[in-house]
Amino acid sequence: MNIDDAAVAFSDGNLVVLSVVLGLIMLGIALDTAPSDFAVVRRAPKAMVLALGAQLLLLPAVTLGLTLALDLQASIALGLILVACCPPGNVSQVLTYRAGGNVALSVSFTAVANAVYVFTMPLSIAFWGGLHPTARDILAEVSLDPAKMFTEIALVIGVPFAVGLTVRARWPRVAARLQKPVRWFSLVALVGLIVAALAGNYQIFVTYISMVLLAVFCHEVVALGTGYLTGRLGGLGPREVKAMTFETGIRNAGLGLGLVFTFFDGIGGMAVVAGWWGIWDILAGLALATVWARRTRSRTSEVVA
């Protein structure tokens, strides 16, 4: 059973729709981003350095170690590395709010990180994927072109992000009206597309999901744990640690899925990993946020009593 030889079908039309939805996600993030959110680099440089370090360096490095420890097939390993190199997802802010974390800091983290990832993501995938003993063969076969991937990422997330920032700066009332509808519509549409992609390739999904479930579960734990430990060891407060946890643990796996079909011909392990990650990280994040929210309410009740 070699998932590396399987290919997930995804039509050109669906790929265009996926790109539009991903663009709307970035537009929604930008519409909720004020210029002052980027000032966190100056106001709270320690937190921002920790956040970027956890996402750009620690998470891919730990992910590489996890793929080696689990002895995963090449395409599954590269799928996890690809997700680890993706920018944070906008759901992180919702989860931070639900958990009682620092939402303002989460918004700033997401804004700065997405701007940085436009430039770093292609290089990160090539670098970390190239370190894996078998995944590097896939990169060699597809002749990954970082410049071409940069162009794709810039069009999908960079341009919509810039448009959203412009609208927010010039027409804040319009941005305020559009932000929530755009964000929630794009999120629901993304989940729908991922479910449709998995359902349309039902046989491949059923055949290989058992191989992917454990890997994605462990990777999600590692991602959330990396953010949490970075915040705690970095001396951040409890609310800031929650923001750091979700900012690191929630990745834009939808973008990863789009890149899998655009640059890797929908290779089985990568596609199933990115697709399942896009659903599972929301479920896992909601579970953790709910636990934190209940603990916060419990402690508040004890203090009041």
Rank of each mutant, 00 (worst) to 15 (best):
I250N: 08
T96K: 01
S36C: 07
W184Q: 05
P181E: 00
C86A: 12
I267A: 00
S210N: 15
T300K: 15
V83N: 05
V291R: 11
V94R: 02
L56M: 12
F261K: 02
V91H: 04
A287V: 14
A39P: 15
L105K: 03
G101D: 01
Y202H: 14
L27A: 03
N2I: 06
A274C: 13
R42M: 14
D5N: 12
S298R: 14
G227A: 04
I81N: 08
V41M: 12
W292R: 10
G200N: 01
L213M: 12
L139Q: 06
V163W: 02
R98W: 15
V191E: 05
L233T: 09
L50G: 10
V112D: 01
V142R: 09
S75E: 09
V49I: 11
L214K: 05
V91G: 14
L27Y: 04
R170E: 14
S19T: 12
W128E: 02
E247A: 07
A176M: 06
M149P: 05
A223L: 09
A7N: 09
V212A: 02
G278R: 02
N252Y: 10
A51P: 09
T245F: 02
R239N: 10
A104K: 04
S301W: 11
A47W: 00
S75V: 08
G23E: 01
W277M: 12
K46R: 13
I282M: 10
T151N: 02
T300I: 15
L259D: 06
R239E: 11
A176S: 13
A176R: 10
C86Q: 10
G268M: 10
V49T: 11
H132G: 06
Y228F: 12
L187N: 04
P122I: 00
A274E: 07
Q55N: 13
D32S: 15
A77P: 12
M244T: 11
A274L: 04
V303E: 08
A175R: 03
L190N: 00
T262G: 00
N2M: 04
A61F: 13
V159N: 02
P35R: 13
N114I: 02
V107G: 01
P88S: 13
G79V: 05
L57N: 14
A215N: 14
S36D: 14
N14K: 12
L144E: 07
Q73D: 07
R43G: 09
H219T: 05
V216F: 03
G225R: 03
D145A: 05
R239K: 13
A44V: 03
F150Q: 05
I138P: 06
L72R: 00
A84S: 14
V103E: 14
G254M: 00
A113C: 11
L52F: 08
L131Y: 02
T248R: 08
V304P: 03
G23S: 00
A293V: 06
K242Q: 15
V16R: 13
T230D: 04
I209G: 00
V304L: 10
W280L: 13
